[in-house]
Every structure is written in C-alpha cells, then in structure tokens.
C-alpha cells in the first residue's frame, strides 16, 4: 500500500506472512465503535465472509483493527469495499425516509393549526 509519508495514513492493510489476500486486518485510523460496529454488521451480512470483527487497540490510540477473513479465495478487500458501499446506501435510505417523515409531520401540524 502506498502511504504518503507527509500525511497521516487513513487506512492500512496488514497481512500475516504466507497468507493470501483473503485474511486481512485493516487498520482504520481515527475511527471507533461508531464506524467499526456498523461496518462489521454490514460485512457480517455478506455470506462470502467467514469472519469479521474489530478491536480498539488501546483507549489512548484512536484507531481500530478491523479483521476480515473470506471464504473461497475471495480478496478481503472486496467485502470491505462492498460493506462500505452498502452502509452508504443504508444511510442514504434512512436519510431520505427521515426527511420525508419530518416533512410529513410538519405538513400535518400546519393542517391542524389551520
């Protein structure tokens, strides 16, 4: 992975020696349970994933180790990318539904006022 030396890296990939790309620990800098747990849920929902879990290395370090193991030789980066994309889709749907409900509530309120 290419990391800019001048800039703090955002994402690192760590692989044990002798393993293929299907067992990878992603190091997500400046993240915690907020992204860790929701992303873990999305990735666990993928049936090609054998294992997915994360840990916070130390309370005073702001990074998480995010582990993905896949089945059938699939590269671990694929479910990682897919999980992120799906989480964006989920959020976008939640956002549109939420804003629609708020709008509806406001309209209903105005009707009552009249």
């Amino acid at each position: 992975m290419a990391e800019g030396a001048e800039r703090k890296p955002l994402l690192e990939m760590v692989q044990a020696d002798g393993t293929d790309g299907n067992c990878v620990t992603f190091v997500l800098h400046d993240e915690d349970h907020t992204l860790g747990n929701s992303l873990r849920y999305m990735i666990m929902k993928n049936s090609e994933v054998e294992f997915c879990g994360y840990s916070i290395t130390h309370p005073s370090e702001s990074k998480i180790n995010f582990r993905i193991q896949t089945r059938g030789g699939l590269l671990a980066i694929e479910p990682f990318r897919r999980g992120l994309t799906e989480l964006v889709d989920v959020c976008q749907h939640v956002l549109s539904k939420f804003e629609a409900s708020i709008k509806e509530y406001r309209a209903q309120r105005e009707e009552e006022m009249d």
């Binding site: 997500l28 993240e31 907020t34 929701s38 989480l87 959020c91 956002l95």
Partner: peptide, 11 residues
C-alpha cells in the same frame, strides 16, 4: 446520518 456517510466515503 450525513457524518456516517462521510466516514464511509472517506475510506
């Protein structure tokens, strides 16, 4: 919700 989207997009 937008902040969470932003986090995903960043990665």
């Amino acid at each position: 919700i937008k902040v969470l989207i932003g986090k995903c997009r960043r990665f």
